[in-house]
Design a protein around this nucleic acid. Structure first.
Length: 273
DNA sequence: ACGTCCTCCTGTTCGC
DNA sequence: TGCGAACAGGAGGACG
């Protein structure tokens, strides 16, 4: 499940391979990946050169000549950089054929990912990127506090809202609540400014640490694809019925707004069941 | 305008 | 053991 740190790792790795390649053609094997008409996508991207790979929240942004190709990996999206003649794997849905006999391939078991072209001149001002809030690195306490004031959602759920704060997915939302010692059920609007400041601080800390780890654990590219790291050093996510590393209480798993939520009832002072 | 539920998908895990 | 149901999850869309 790529979140901001994983996408950043993918971006850094991908950059080393695809920059300065020209797109020669595109094959699509599952058309719902590409937003809009596949033929239009194919014609529009033809001949454009990849100049840079950027990231905003969990979106990858391939900077081309006239357009940007915006890519969201959702749950299981991966990129392969390989030779044109390499066999196409089962879950590879889009092959972007580059010059020099190379391919950039999009692979996604669940087929949830999206790929779309947007005019480069104003891509931040139109969908999908104009929906995004600021990332934890840039948002101010006042901005997040005031966004939280406008919702009745639990803090755990609010952290997942990309319009309020961008880049946090379910895994890190759980970790951030734990490390901040905040009850995931508490309404976001009930947090004090000090608590919001703590949330931001811990978010930055956790995301940066994950990015660092990703940067050192991504040596197996090219044939295996860029998958992003798989989380090490998690405190609560996926740890239900295991003892909390801080206090020894058993980590619980419950659903909050349909999402699996893991927490330590003691550290996070969760009273009601 | 906001919250809730559904949809998109397939591989894995769970329950009978 | 086998097989269907439930689950996992990001985000957009429908609906109230």
């Amino acid at each position: 499940m790529p979140e901001l740190p994983e996408v950043e790792t993918v971006r850094n790795t991908l950059k080393q391979y695809v920059i300065n390649h020209r797109v020669e053609s595109v094959d699509s094997y599952w058309d719902n990946i590409i937003v809009g008409e596949v033929d239009a996508f194919r014609e529009r991207i033809y001949g454009q050169v990849i100049h840079d790979v950027k990231r905003l929240g969990k979106f990858l942004i391939f900077e081309l000549d006239q357009d940007v190709m915006i890519s969201h990996l959702r749950m299981e999206g991966k990129y392969f950089y390989c030779d044109y003649h390499d066999p196409v794997e089962k879950h590879t849905h889009v092959c972007i054929h580059l010059d020099k006999g190379k391919d950039l391939r999009y692979h996604d078991v669940r087929k949830f990912g999206k790929l779309q072209l947007v005019d480069k001149s104003n891509y931040l001002e139109v969908e999908p990127l104009n929906r995004l809030g600021k990332e934890p690195f840039h948002i101010t306490v006042d901005e997040l506090y005031s966004a939280f004031q406008k919702t009745s959602l639990p803090i755990k759920t609010a952290l997942l809202d990309q319009g309020m704060i961008a880049g946090i997915g379910n895994i890190y939302a759980n970790e951030i609540c734990f490390v901040s010692k905040i009850d995931p059920y508490r309404k976001a609007r009930d947090l004090s400014k000090e608590e919001v400041a703590l949330i931001i601080e811990k978010s930055i800390y956790i995301l940066n640490r994950a990015i660092e780890q990703g940067g050192t654990s991504i040596h197996t590219f090219s044939s295996n694809g860029i998958t992003g790291l798989f989380q090490q050093q998690l405190f609560v996510h996926g740890k239900n019925n295991q003892p909390c590393q801080i206090c020894g209480s058993l980590i619980l798993k419950e659903k909050i707004n349909q999402r699996g939520t893991y927490y330590c009832p003691t550290c996070q002072e969760v009273k009601k069941k």
